[in-house]
Amino acid sequence: KYKEAKESFQRFLENHEKMTSTTRYKKAEQMFGEMEVWNAISERDRLEIYEDVL
Rank of each mutant, 00 (worst) to 15 (best):
A28Q: 01
S42D: 06
V53T: 10
Y25I: 04
T23C: 01
N39A: 01
K27D: 15
F32A: 11
F32W: 12
S21L: 10
K18E: 13
T20G: 13
I41W: 01
Y2G: 06
L13A: 08
Q30M: 09
K18R: 11
E4P: 00
G33A: 06
N39L: 06
E43M: 02
R24T: 15
T20S: 10
K18T: 09
R46T: 00
F12N: 09
Y2P: 03
G33H: 03
S21A: 15
A5P: 05
E34H: 14
T22I: 13
K6P: 02
S8Q: 14
Y2A: 04
D52W: 04
F9A: 07
L47K: 13
S8H: 12
M19I: 15
L13T: 03
F32P: 05
E7K: 12
R44E: 14
T22A: 12
S42Y: 01
M31A: 03
N39Y: 00
E48M: 14
E34T: 13
F12M: 11
E7Q: 13
E14T: 15
K6C: 12
L13C: 04
E14C: 11
S8Y: 05
K3W: 00
D45G: 02
E29F: 01
R24D: 15
E36R: 09
G33K: 13
F9D: 10
N15S: 02
E48D: 10
F9K: 01
A5G: 07
K3C: 05
R46N: 11
V37F: 01
E4S: 13
M35R: 09
N39G: 06
K3N: 09
K3G: 05
E17L: 10
Q30G: 08
M19H: 14
F32Y: 12
W38V: 07
E34A: 11
T20H: 15
T22M: 11
L47F: 13
K27N: 10
D52G: 12
Q30T: 11
I41F: 04
N39H: 07
A5D: 13
T23R: 02
F9L: 10
M31G: 05
A28T: 03
D52I: 00
D52P: 01
Q10T: 01
F32S: 06
M31H: 03
K6G: 03
H16W: 01
M19G: 05
M31N: 01
E48Y: 07
T23D: 04
H16C: 15
I41Q: 06
R24F: 07
W38M: 04
R44T: 15
S8D: 14
E36A: 12
G33L: 00
K3H: 00
S8A: 15
E7Y: 06
S21R: 11
E7S: 08
K3Q: 03
